[in-house]
Nucleic acid binder design. Sequence first.
DNA 1: CTGAAAGCGCTTACAG
DNA 2: CTGAAAGCGCTTACAG
Lengths: 333, 333
Amino acid sequence: MSSIREVSRVAGVSIATVSRALSTPEKVSKKSLRKVQEAVEKVHYRPNMMARNFRAARSHSIVVLVPNLANLHFATVIRSLEEEAHKNGYSVLLGDTGGSEERDQEYMNLVETRQADGAIQLLAHAKGAPPPPDHIAIVNACGAEDTPYACVRIDNAEASKTVVDYLISLGHRRIGVISGLKSNPHSIDRLKGYTQALSNAGIPFDANIVVEGDFTIASGLNAANHFAAMKNRPTALFCMNDEMAIAAIQGLRNHDIKIPEEMSITGFDDIEFSRISDPPLTTVSQPAKEIGKVAMRTLLKKINGEGIAQETIVLPHELIVRKSTALAQKQKG
Amino acid sequence: MSSIREVSRVAGVSIATVSRALSTPEKVSKKSLRKVQEAVEKVHYRPNMMARNFRAARSHSIVVLVPNLANLHFATVIRSLEEEAHKNGYSVLLGDTGGSEERDQEYMNLVETRQADGAIQLLAHAKGAPPPPDHIAIVNACGAEDTPYACVRIDNAEASKTVVDYLISLGHRRIGVISGLKSNPHSIDRLKGYTQALSNAGIPFDANIVVEGDFTIASGLNAANHFAAMKNRPTALFCMNDEMAIAAIQGLRNHDIKIPEEMSITGFDDIEFSRISDPPLTTVSQPAKEIGKVAMRTLLKKINGEGIAQETIVLPHELIVRKSTALAQKQKG
DNA sequence: CTGAAAGCGCTTACAG
DNA sequence: CTGAAAGCGCTTACAG
């Protein structure tokens, strides 16, 4: 409650001197400094950051847009994002959009109305999306190919191809997919890697074994039921994230389908649960922490008007082979 | 960039009229209103919320302190918290403390320096902790008993007792524990329920089978190894959250211990993964969304100076019986 | 219904 | 080194 004015009164100096004592103590005499410090103590002065930020025209906040905070990959990226922000004196405003375009807009308004200095989006934009207005600092963490935004991501297509190549190397030829929403740019990029791997191996694409999920456990379970009921079932499943993959394992097991003996399953992200699923999940890891750190640094640079070397930064992924995949059975017909 | 001043210039009215047209249009003539609206369009005016908030002495932000965003129970509470905040025109500032006292302090400073109007803590305070200063609006979601803060929570002791009672009803007499950090108030409350259930059943407490974890998957795995190596192993394990329980299941299985045949396992929270662990986890559910919603509402009331009916709100828990628990084997010695 | 003015809490040229 | 003053963008009594 007490302002700089009260401090000045108690210290017997002007508010200008108080301000200087607080922010640039070297510009103030020892004596004034001491008087101010004592007064600050006495009146329990705490600076009003709203005033400070307002005057500096810097909110020192970043809004982070995420479709689903309860997705462990995103949660991990955000932790790292937040840590990096904190180190640089910034706070993060959480914007869980639940996948809604409208919410996304509302949160972007925070930066338009200067409640935030910039934004980081953890969702990928549709390919045709218009680039953000110039006055808005924004970076896309976990983005997709061809996004018109500055972007920090892995090569989703390549990563997917790596996993599917691995399945093919195990002898699988009929490889199903549990994808995210088909309109989701991540789904599109990852499907691209899948079809590439297939075509390289001369395996025809079969749309019937690509089932749409939405990156949630529930959708993985649904998809599993669908595959279980299929007559000509795939021998392997490429799942576009770990949540759906782990759900699929359990969903399939509910139908007495053995993993990996009867079906190999792969995930995407390498969340911690993948280590302790049964069987442990073969997946491709994303450097979630690194993505968060680099994305925040990139955004902060943008905000501070420092040039950014590259608009798109692609970080390495890694195939993690565990026990949910096995050689295709030599069963015929 | 354009301020209310530019709008006033373009519209040919005073800034007071512009301000009124924007916030209380009924106090302005139709003609002025139209002129202002046109000018707003023309100069792409967006209000500067930093100025607005500063003047109103309301940041319209809430800081949410959480020890670990990547904990699924917390993530779920936060989503709900945030949704409720959003509905009321508030934003949430994320404060992931990683369990550090220091970080906690730093984030609480946001409210002291008026970058936030209040705080919600998802961690429980130590019993002896001093109550928060009066001028700070704060509520504890997921708190512990006897916290000196306004608090929305389940009855942790009772919920724990319910689970352990259930294990006892299955014939288990040697029931191990994987706890959180022993200093953590949740651990304390939950251990209380455990010992109560034991003593009600006339089972002596054995400190050797209470192993300390920290609510993470890694610590669950460690604890599992510890139990696996034990000569006189418990027949059941009460784990203080689901992450540790699911990790324990897998950790134990790595030692060829069958769940639930050789050991029953229970969790706490009922995160979504509990449905798809193998076997699905018997646990006690917390109404995470409800906790978040009620906590935010309570805080907002506090901020607006509306009286709060009760300082502590206890929400119901529920025992969820799945397949990770079974009758104790009639094995002797 | 309207405008001129004060003021929210700070910082920073400017003059001394 | 110090203080008086202006100003950041808004809102709101106050007078008309």
